[in-house]
Design a protein around this nucleic acid. Sequence first.
DNA 1: TTATTTTTGTACTAATTGGTACATTTATAA
DNA 2: TTATAAATGTACCAATTAGTACAAAAATAA
Lengths: 199, 199
Amino acid sequence: MKTNTQTRGRPKTFDETEVLTRAMHYFWEHGYDNTSLDNLLVAMGIKKSSFYATFKSKEDVFSKTLALYREQNMQYMRNLKEKVGPKEAMLTLMNLTIKELEETGKVKGCLLINSGKECYNRYDDLSKQISHEFNFMQDMFEALIQDAKDKREIKNPKDAKTIAGRYMNALNGLVVTIQAGAKQALIDDLIESLKEILE
Amino acid sequence: MKTNTQTRGRPKTFDETEVLTRAMHYFWEHGYDNTSLDNLLVAMGIKKSSFYATFKSKEDVFSKTLALYREQNMQYMRNLKEKVGPKEAMLTLMNLTIKELEETGKVKGCLLINSGKECYNRYDDLSKQISHEFNFMQDMFEALIQDAKDKREIKNPKDAKTIAGRYMNALNGLVVTIQAGAKQALIDDLIESLKEILE
DNA sequence: TTATTTTTGTACTAATTGGTACATTTATAA
DNA sequence: TTATAAATGTACCAATTAGTACAAAAATAA
């Protein structure tokens, strides 16, 4: 069992997860196609030569950021649940979108949903991966709702899978509705309908 | 009042609305950015020179197809309502998506919603137009729901604007959920939830 | 020092993009 | 026939795209 990570030659100066996280945020903001390699390199803070020495391609990096997004989100939700309970953790997903809209006038939406739409029928491998990550996260939401039901935070008699599915569907709907330029009154009512689902 | 549309020179051989309709379907299938001018020309069935003699730019054509989409949809809904009543007309929107999924394994979604997501924060003029067309259609849906309520087809005591907003939101959510690769069980329940909104 | 590895810098490729220029052909009215 | 407008065909443009090649510099272990 050698823990000797010291190898000969110049040591790596950047952390792979760190640059992938930066890439993830750039893809999240701009989408996959609309992210040029040059801009991506600036966002990641590494040069083209280092990029291709570390990763296979732009698609490879995008794929890794999708996995990272799912992973970081699930970690975030686990922590949040410990702090504020499962129902409040679910409501936080919605509240983050509301806050983002109030503060910036825009919403980015879920990276997986955005990428699903963008890659649908165009990038087979990515689409399959997105489906996998999406269902993984959906299962986590279901578990959260089940937890909230067990704790009597949610009275809704429907089963957890149904509640989680409808809540996330309405939330993802809200994002595209905002992005299509809906009026505030409609947005406000959709927020109200989201709360009702978790009652 | 001269109705003499006959002008000197070679008469136009293509109908503007016809080629715009073809352009609309291509944009609907592939999105704005992912539609290259060359492919668009093939879809429209005209040559580049005719294209630029008739339209200003690719964006100009896209903008015109967005208006056309809204117009054709509203016309379609008007006719449908006369035939099957307002509630059934609304349900048809959902049924068309279900049928499309069953028959082709894919869903295109609403052109305005798709374009809203694609143009959001990138194409200012288009975004503004999309917002306009979207709210125009949303108002029509509200009127349809009101009609259905007046005819006692819908018992839901919530006001028409709320019901229309929630129904369309859930339907647009369903599309992105499918495109993200959701499992059939989730899709089926979301369809059930859509029906419940119109009860 | 020397071997090794990372990182950088520069130059390049081939393909694709939306759009322009312009001469030629075709179909009509006068 | 002649003037006119529509349509075609061909050639071009400058910018951008993801990705490659390779030499040089920098940082470490041995």
